[in-house]
Write a protein that binds this DNA or RNA. Structure first.
Length: 271
DNA sequence: CAGAATACCTGCGGGC
DNA sequence: TGCCCGCAGGTATTCT
C-alpha cells in the first residue's frame, strides 16, 4: 500500500472535496476485503453528511454525525474521486456517491484493504486503540523510543515497523530511515546506543516529513485522490536500489530478508 | 509476553 | 506466446 505519506496525501486531497458533502448512495460490488465490508453501509450511510476527514496511522477516517468510516488501503488500495459516475473496472469494489454527483471510488486488486463502519468514537475502535504514536508527533521522541526498545531483541527494522511502537513506518521508509541514521537494519533494538536512537528518531521524522511534502512515493499502485503521482521515489537512497552503488560511498548496496521482507542497505554506511 | 511464521489476494516481470 | 516462480507498498492472527 501507500505508506503513511501516501495516505496523508490522499486524506489531504479528500478533505476539501468531501467536507460537508451528503451521501446519496453506496454501491458495494465486492464484499470480501481484509474483513467483510458491512452490508448495512448501503442502508445506513445515505443521508449522512461528512463532518470530518482524519488520518490515524494508515487509516483514513471519514466521520459523519452517526459514525465513522474506517478505510485502509492495504497493499494495493486506491481512492479516487470522480465528478460523475463512470463505469467501474474490475477491482473497483466500492462507490460512495454524494448528492453533488461526486463519486468516491475504492479500488483494491489484492483486497488486503479494509472498509469498516463504527458508531463509537473511532479512536477507540479495536484496530486503532492500541496504535503507537504518530511519527511526526512530539510524543515520538528519543526518550520514548529509548524506553520502547528496552529489552527488545528483535531487529530494529522490525521494531520501527511495529505499529504498537510507532505507526506509519512501512518497508520503504524503514529502509530509508535506517540509511539516513546510519544504522544496520538487523541491529537488535536493545543494542542501539542513545546516540543512534536520537539519530533514528530524527531520521524517521525527516524521511516521513519530506515524503509528505513531495506527495508520497511513486509506485505502481499509488496515486492520490486526483490520480497524481508522488515524487518521493526520486529521493530514495536504498529502497529498490539493490546491487546499485551507494550514493554516499559507492559501496554496492546489499539486500537481506528481515522478517520476511526485503531490506536494502549499505554495509559501509550502516554499521 | 516477545518474536517468528502464517494468512489474506492479484498482478507483474523474469526465466525457460 | 505461455507457463511457472518469486516478489510486491500491510498487518492481524496464530504459533512457539
Amino acid at each position: 500500500m501507500p505508506e503513511l505519506p501516501e495516505v496523508e496525501t490522499i486524506a489531504r486531497g479528500l478533505q476539501p472535496a468531501l467536507q460537508h458533502q451528503k451521501i446519496q448512495s453506496v454501491a458495494i460490488r465486492h464484499h470480501q476485503l481484509r474483513w467483510p465490508v458491512p452490508n448495512n453501509l448501503s442502508t445506513e450511510l445515505p443521508g449522512l453528511t461528512i463532518k470530518a476527514i482524519n488520518r490515524r496511522a494508515k487509516y483514513i477516517v471519514l466521520t459523519t454525525d452517526q459514525g465513522s468510516l474506517l478505510i485502509h488501503l492495504g497493499m494495493s488500495g486506491r481512492i479516487q474521486l470522480h465528478q460523475a459516475f463512470i463505469p467501474p473496472k474490475k477491482h473497483d469494489h466500492i462507490d460512495i456517491a454524494f448528492t453533488n454527483q461526486m463519486i468516491m471510488r475504492f479500488t483494491d486488486p489484492r483486497r488486503f484493504g479494509a472498509f469498516l463502519w463504527t458508531t463509537a468514537q473511532w479512536e477507540f475502535h479495536p484496530l486503532l486503540k492500541n496504535l503507537g504514536p504518530e511519527p511526526l508527533d512530539k510524543d515520538f521522541s528519543e526518550h520514548y523510543l529509548q524506553h520502547a526498545l528496552k529489552n527488545r531483541s528483535a531487529a530494529i527494522k522490525n521494531l520501527i515497523m511495529n505499529n504498537n511502537i510507532v505507526v506509519g513506518v512501512g518497508n520503504i521508509y524503514a529502509a530509508e530511515s535506517l540509511f539516513l541514521a546510519g544504522i544496520n537494519p538487523s541491529t537488535r533494538g536493545c543494542a542501539l546506543t542513545l546516540s543512534q536512537i536520537k539519530k533514528l528518531v530524527r531520521a524517521i521524522k525527516i524521511v516521513i516529513n519530506d515524503a509528505i511534502e513531495l506527495g508520497g512515493t511513486t509506485l505502481k499502485d499509488f496515486a492520490d485522490s486526483n490520480g497524481n503521482p508522488g515524487y518521493f521515489s526520486q529521493q530514495l537512497k536504498v529502497y529498490g536500489r539493490k546491487a546499485l552503488p551507494c550514493f554516499q560511498c559507492k559501496t554496492i548496496l546489499r539486500s537481506m530478508t528481515i522478517a520476511g521482507r526485503s531490506t536494502v542497505f549499505c554495509t559501509t554506511c550502516q554499521q
